[in-house]
Each structure stands twice: as C-alpha cells, then as structure tokens.
C-alpha cells in the first residue's frame, strides 16, 4: 500500500464527485445556455425589464435541473464503475461557498445595472466577474486536485480581461464570457469523462471471456 496523506484522504469524496467530468459538463451546459440567453435577449427592446424575470427563473430552475441530471447520470455511469458514496450533510460547505460566489457575482451585476452606474464601470464588469469565477475554479482545482478546473478558471480570467480590454458593450460582453466559459467547461468535462471511462471500466469489462 502506498503512503497516503490523511488530509487528502478526507478530501477524496469531493474529488470522487468531480473526477468523472459530469459536474463540469453539466455546469458548462448551464453557462452556455445562460450566455446564449443573455445574447438573445439583448436583441429585444427594453432588454433588462423584459428579460430579468425569465432569466432569474431560468437560473434558479436550471440549478435544480442540473443537480437532478448529474445525480441520474452518476447513477448510470459513475456508480457502477467507481462505487457509491453519500456525503454527510455537514461537509457540504464547498458547495455552499460556490453558491455564495455565484450569488455575489449575480448580485454585483444586478447592482451595477439597477444603479445605472457609468458605462465605463459596466464595461469593466466582465473582467471583475471573470476574476471572481476564475478564483472559484482555481480553488476547486487545488482543493480536489483536478487540473481541468484550473483550465476553465484560466479561460474565465482571460475571456473577462480580453472583453474588458476590447471595451465590448455590456451585457453582450457578459453573454460572450458565459459562452466561452461554457465551451471550455464542456470540452474539459468531455476530456475528464473520457479519461474516467478509460481508467474505470465496468467490473468484468476487458476480462477474457470464459
């Protein structure tokens, strides 16, 4: 048996939950849909007044739907290969931290838009939000030891900064940033899932027939 770090062992459930790429894949789909929705609704007259309610409903409903989809996919893909585990209720604080970061990002957009702050501030918003999202991804990558989260974080940071430097119009800039983060998450999620399936064949798979 190889020597193991006890603290790393205690973090294994989080790593186990994220290593198959399914959370990243579904999260990427959500970011992509959010970005596309933002870009589509920008073309409507009176954008924020019309779009704010369905957008909020979409974000809330999408979060619940994604959680359900990931659980179902894990039941059919991950659990037969890598086993079943159920987290204790009191160790879900990283998820709560993620939700807090997301809520802060959304709240800062709402404050800037509602307060009608200067155009320059709105243009700088993707850079700030990109950094915030990147920080959350970098933290997850380091905490769970999953490099693909760093790749998505890097994409979030770079896309935010590039859109800010290009002085793209708000909220189109935000929509494009969400699209780019979504695409990066989906690509990394596919990569992780492929690696997971290759490294964890179904019990009995790959054994010579008797």
């Amino acid at each position: 048996m190889n020597p193991v770090n006890l603290n790393q062992v205690l973090r294994r459930p989080g790593r186990h939950w994220n290593i198959d790429g399914l959370p990243l894949l579904s999260m990427g789909t959500f970011w992509l849909l959010l970005g596309v929705a933002t870009l589509l609704m920008d073309s409507l007259e009176g954008y924020w007044k019309v779009a704010s309610v369905p957008l909020t409903l979409f974000i809330t409903g999408g979060g619940f739907a994604l959680n359900y989809i990931v659980k179902r996919l894990k039941q059919s893909i991950t659990e037969p290969r890598a086993g079943v585990m159920r987290l204790r209720q009191d160790v879900k604080w990283p998820a709560a931290l993620g939700a807090l970061v997301a809520a802060f990002a959304i709240a800062s957009v709402v404050v800037v838009v509602k307060a009608g702050l200067q155009c320059e501030v709105q243009r700088a918003l993707p850079g700030g939000i990109g950094l915030l999202i990147a920080a959350a991804f970098f933290y997850c990558s380091r905490h769970y030891g999953i490099p693909s989260y760093s790749a998505v974080g890097l994409c979030a940071m770079l896309s935010g900064l590039v859109l800010t430097v290009l002085r793209a119009r708000f909220p189109v800039s935000l929509g494009w940033m969400f699209v780019l983060i979504g695409v990066a998450s989906i690509l990394c999620g596919i990569g992780d899932l492929t690696r997971f399936l290759r490294e964890n064949p179904l019990p009995g798979e790959g054994e010579p027939a008797q």
Partner: peptide
C-alpha cells in the same frame, strides 16, 4: 486507518467505492 479515513466524511459508501479508493 485508510478505511476509517475514507468513511469519516461520508454517510455511507459501498464496497466498490472503498475498493477503488483504497486500492486494497
């Protein structure tokens, strides 16, 4: 010790999970 550490943050886990994580 490894088995206890693996089970500590969890409500429950099945044999396959412990097998893949412990490499025993």
């Amino acid at each position: 010790l490894l088995i206890c550490a693996l089970l500590y943050p969890l409500e429950e886990a099945d044999f396959l999970y412990l097998l893949t994580q412990s490499e025993l």
